[in-house]
Computed example of a mutant assay.
Amino acid sequence: MTDSFAVVDPTTVRPEEFQTCETAVRKLTERLGCTEMRVNQVLVEPDEVTTPHTHEGQEEVFAALTDGQISIEGDVHDVPAGGVVRVHPDTVRNLCNHTDDRHVWLAFGAPPVGSVEDFGSYVVEE
């Protein structure tokens, strides 16, 4: 049985690189005790772009903690701090940063297919 709640300060979690790019991610799922979703904090530095991908069977929600940018089907969208983006499992998406400031996101995926180490149903177009 999991605890009824958890509080995590993401800055206490060591950032790691995504498997498919150099973007830093702080994996929060396990620390939060999540069983029904995956949660990561993604740190996108200036001129970084995460790998365009879809998730078979997993819807994603991105919450911008700072101003940020997300590419949906190749079109870049500016998202203000506090903005929230939902992406259908079959839609190609990736976080990008064409500014001079770090972008910080929380990424939620449900159901929790795959992980940062083993993307499972994470699909990267050839």
Rank of each mutant, 00 (worst) to 15 (best):
E117K: 06
S71T: 11
T12V: 11
F119R: 12
D9K: 10
T66E: 03
N40L: 09
V85I: 15
H53Q: 10
V124Q: 10
E36R: 13
V76R: 12
F119Q: 12
P52F: 04
G74D: 02
D67A: 12
D100Q: 10
T23M: 13
P89T: 05
E56T: 11
A110C: 08
G33A: 10
V7I: 15
L28H: 07
E126A: 14
V92S: 08
E73A: 14
T54S: 10
G74C: 05
V123H: 14
L95G: 00
H103L: 00
V61A: 08
D118H: 13
A107R: 02
T51I: 14
Q69P: 03
G83D: 02
E126F: 13
H55K: 02
G33I: 08
V8I: 15
Q41C: 11
I70Q: 01
R93C: 06
D47I: 05
V25K: 04
P10V: 06
C21H: 13
T11V: 14
T29P: 04
H77N: 02
V76I: 15
E59P: 01
H77I: 07
A81K: 01
H103D: 06
T11H: 10
E117A: 13
E48P: 00
G83T: 06
R14N: 04
T50C: 12
V104C: 04
P10A: 04
H77R: 07
T66S: 13
A110N: 06
V61P: 01
D100T: 14
T12Y: 07
T20I: 11
G114E: 04
L28Q: 03
R86L: 12
G120W: 00
T91P: 02
L106G: 00
A63D: 06
H77A: 03
T35M: 04
F108I: 14
R14S: 06
L43N: 02
G114A: 05
F108C: 06
D118T: 09
V113P: 00
V49G: 00
F119K: 05
G83R: 03
L28P: 04
H88C: 01
S121E: 15
E48Y: 10
H55G: 01
V39D: 02
R38K: 13
P89V: 06
P15R: 08
E117P: 01
V113G: 06
Q41T: 03
P111A: 02
A107E: 10
V116E: 11
Q58G: 05
V7K: 07
S121F: 00
G57K: 00
A81S: 13
E125F: 07
V92G: 00
E17T: 14
Q69N: 06
P111K: 07
V116K: 00
E16R: 10
V49M: 09
V124M: 07
N94I: 05
P46G: 05
I70E: 01
Y122M: 09
A64G: 08
M1Y: 12
P80S: 10
E48C: 03
T50N: 11
P112A: 04
V116M: 04
D100F: 00
H55S: 03
T91K: 08
E45I: 03
R38M: 14
A81G: 13
D75L: 11
F119L: 12
Y122G: 01
L65Q: 09
N97P: 03
P46W: 09
T12H: 11
E22M: 08
T91Y: 08
D101P: 02
F18Y: 11
T29W: 14
A110T: 13
V49I: 12
C34R: 01
